[in-house]
Design a protein around this nucleic acid. Structure first.
Length: 788
DNA sequence: ATTTTACAAATTTTT
DNA sequence: TTTGTAAAAT
């Protein structure tokens, strides 16, 4: 038998060996789903399948990258070349770059993020003079997104009386018109939004049979991870691609479907059998991840859901500890409790900080935990919230790149036409826009041509300013064409006046913004160097932009070695695991969220979300909730979540805060009465651990620097499982000297030949033994002294 | 055209 | 709590 197969249990092995025909793997939490996917690919290759013919669609790019690296490790680097792995969005964006011409899109099309899309819509609403309280850009964008994910194009919408009726009822009778106009604007701008990447792929495959045939023939073996979270649009793409060979393997867990708000359709997994009657179905039910208490607790919870596939998750692991349930008096105390527990385990059991995760329902909850951790100098990392590439200053610089590469990019144009100040205000922009719409031009084209049309009403000096701007952008394009992405980016950052503008701002925020801008430039240099290493890699600035548009927080690697506590929303924790997990904020209207308590379907999704959170834990789980909580600046009373009651209590261990002597303990026990019962007034100020309960903002000592800088400049990455003994061998270098022998993680060994700059811009020129001379920024390139 | 000031609104989850 | 928008002033 293949040595690969020996490393799997019987159920896993069966799923791996069923290479031909449709296969569905129902994989319980922690049952080795990723392992099956990985071994299946390796097994296919071992059976002689060309990796070129395999496509695996994963949930994050990071998952794809890691899996690919491990397969390369098993099968050899060159053997796994050509294997395609990535998210739906990144894989099909790539195909659209190559084939989008058939649909009339340029290969350098821009990807609009949600913010861009909403701004385009906001502009339309303004142009049409509609009430933006009723026609809220966010709402419109959501509805349009939903239509796109259901494959309802503007023309299809016009045929759908039911949808038109529904929008009328929602007081949005013009939604169809806005949708149509929005689609046209995007087309003219050479831009696609996230949903378009799937919708246009469908259009491409449906309208051009020869293109469909080409990719059907290429992707003879298709694998889809997290199938329960695919939406209709993705489902149809998969179906189309798989329809020739039907070697389709989908892996998922209906109990972990948590993305219905994004159009994910749990029926995709529930009805797979009907779509493919001859499909083989495998169930992975043994959990290798968590203790018995955790597995059973999670099971008892998820049993309350009606929409489920039959499946019994079990584990042979030891019982472990019960789940600790803690009720805090306030969100502030909740943060302190969690930080205390982490600190305790860290010092008593030598658990390094990367073994802990704090999971919450909404990103806004992170604050109390940040404060508590920072106060104790516990390093942490926040995922989500506003990511690096969403920051204003980063998007501003990116907009220059975008416009230089695709001058029709309307949002980029609007963003930077008057930033830094060029004396081109709203009046000019309005007139320019009117002119552009009349002539059916993009704003950039309009700005270039308006000089010939005095009737547009833009005065001479302003026309000159517009023209100067266009000339500058054209010169940027020429710079990019030289092919040196980093140099071009730096040139643009300077020539645009953006750096100067940031430098003139002396405020701490301004300094941080400048740092972030520099960080972006560094990222470009890194990208350039990395891509240059890969054979056939595209190191252009355009390629960088394509990557950046689809990057998420979860994709980023941690570039500092310090182990950190992870803070993230439960959604983001999907697919991850941690030895110790805190699920926090278990309160009615927060979790389950207010938005989700009205229908059974929504409530069940919230319950699945809680299930996902619990099953992230390997050894120990905590559940916490607060009595009072600050929400939008006001202190409000909370009620414990119904979900706590739903867990079989034999797996729970209730902890209660210090009890006032006059109060009978029972009255503090959760669920002893209704809601909070009569919680006693707390005279003392002590937490359960006996610490004094500091007032707001008093605890942070000015003498010690926080473990985390106040404004984390970039999202670092994480490696929950491999935090121990990482890093290459060698001695880190603070100050390299000319002539020193060094090692670089990517370029290998070399010798320092020159040094330049200081502070954050300090760089070294290194002559590498194999890859030649490179200039590296020191704070960025992890150079180490060569060890013989 | 830009800056200042005041006031309001907003918080679910994400590719 | 912060962030964004509208009106008013320069």
């Amino acid at each position: 038998m293949s040595t690969l197969l020996q490393q799997l249990n019987p159920a896993q092995r069966a799923a791996v060996e069923a290479t031909d025909g449709p296969v569905m793997v129902i994989a319980g939490a922690g049952s080795g789903k990723t392992r099956v996917l990985m071994y299946r690919i390796a097994y296919l290759m071992e059976q002689g399948v060309d990796p070129f013919n395999i496509l695996a669609l994963t949930f994050t790019n990071k998952a794809a990258r890691e899996m690919k690296a491990r397969i390369a490790g098993m099968m050899g680097d060159s053997a796994s070349k050509g294997l395609w792995m990535g998210t739906f969005h990144s894989v099909f964006a790539r195909i659209l770059r190559a084939e989008g011409g058939a649909l009339g899109f340029p290969s350098n099309f821009t990807i609009y993020d949600t913010e861009d899309a909403q701004k385009v819509i906001a502009n339309l609403v303004k142009e049409k003079d509609l009430d933006k309280e009723i026609y809220k850009p966010k709402t419109l964008q959501n509805r349009i997104s939903a239509y796109k994910n259901a494959l309802v194009t503007p023309s299809a919408y016009a045929q759908r009386a039911d949808l038109i009726e529904a929008d009328k009822a929602a007081r949005l009778p013009l939604l169809g018109a806005i949708y149509t106009e929005y689609t046209e604007r995007c087309f003219r701008a050479g831009a696609m939004d996230f949903d378009d990447l799937l919708l246009k792929t469908n259009e491409l495959l449906a309208r051009f049979p020869e293109i469909l045939a080409k990719y059907q023939d290429r992707f003879r073996y298709l694998m889809v991870d997290e199938y329960q979270d695919t939406n209709h649009s993705q489902y149809i793409i998969v179906k189309a691609l798989a329809s020739r060979f039907e070697n389709l393997c989908v892996v998922g867990d209906d109990a972990q479907s948590i993305y219905s708000f994004r159009g994910a359709n749990i029926r995709n997994i529930l009805s797979f059998r009907q779509d493919y009657p001859e499909a083989q179905i495998f169930k992975l039910e043994q959990n290798y991840r968590s203790t018995d208490h955790i597995v059973r607790a999670a099971n008892s919870l998820i049993e309350k859901n009606k929409d489920r596939l039959e499946k019994v998750v079990w584990t042979a692991n030891d019982p472990g500890e019960k789940i600790t349930v803690f009720k805090a008096i306030s969100d502030f105390e909740e943060g302190n409790y969690v930080a205390e527990r982490i600190s305790e385990s860290h010092f008593q059991h030598q658990w390094d900080y990367s073994r802990f995760a704090i999971l919450y329902r909404t990103n806004a909850q992170s604050r109390a935990f940040e404060d508590a951790l920072r106060k104790r100098n516990i390093p942490y990392r926040i995922f989500g919230g506003l990511s690096f590439y969403m920051r204003k200053e980063v998007k501003d610089l990116l907009a220059y790149f975008r416009l230089a590469i695709n001058p029709n990019d309307e949002e980029a144009f609007r963003r930077i036409i008057n930033y830094p100040k060029r004396e081109i205000g709203p009046t000019t922009l309005d007139r320019l826009n009117v002119f552009a719409q009349e002539k059916r031009l993009s704003l950039f084209e309009a700005a270039e041509e308006v000089v010939m049309y005095p009737s547009a009403g833009i005065n001479g000096p302003t026309v000159q300013r517009l023209s100067n701007f266009c000339i500058m952008i054209r010169s940027f394009a020429a710079e990019i064409a030289k092919g040196q992405a980093y140099e071009a980016a730096q040139f643009m950052a300077n020539a645009s006046g953006l750096i100067r503008d940031l430098k003139s701002d002396g405020t701490p925020e301004g300094v941080s913004r400048l740092e972030n801008t520099m960080e972006l430039l560094n990222a470009i240099q890194d990208f350039y160097q990395r891509q240059s290493q890969v054979e056939g890699g595209d190191a252009s600035l355009g390629a960088f932009l394509q990557d950046v548009a689809l990057i998420t927080d979860a994709d980023k690697e941690d570039d500092e070695g310090t182990p950190k506590v992870s803070l993230m929303s439960i959604h983001q924790s999907k697919g991850l695991e941690f030895p110790c997990v805190f699920v926090v904020g278990l309160e009615e209207t927060l979790f389950p969220n207010l938005m989700a308590i009205n229908s059974r379907e929504d409530l069940e999704e919230e319950r699945r979300l809680f299930y996902v959170a619990l099953t992230r834990a390997e050894r120990k789980a905590y559940i916490t909730y607060a009595h009072t909580r600050y929400r939008f600046g006001k202190l409000i009373d909370c009620e414990p979540s119904r979900f706590i009651e739903e867990i079989d209590e034999q797996h729970l261990d209730f902890k209660i805060p210090t009890v006032h002597p006059f109060t009978p303990p029972e009255s503090l026990l959760p669920f002893s009465g209704q809601g909070w019962g009569k919680a006693p007034a707390r005279f003392g100020n002590s937490t359960p651990t006996g610490r004094t309960f500091p007032g707001k903002d008093t605890g942070s000592s000015p003498r010690t620097r926080p473990a985390q800088p106040p404004a984390p400049a970039r999202p670092a990455g994480m490696k929950p499982l491999e935090s121990l003994g990482n890093g290459p061998t060698g001695v880190p270098i603070d100050t390299p000297e000319i002539g020193m022998r060094v090692v670089h993680p990517q370029f290998g060994r070399g010798q320092v030949v020159d040094l330049n700059g200081e502070g954050p811009n300090a760089s070294a020129t290194v002559l590498f033994d194999h890859t030649g001379e490179k200039k590296l920024l020191l704070r960025f390139a992890k150079l180490e002294r060569e060890t013989p």
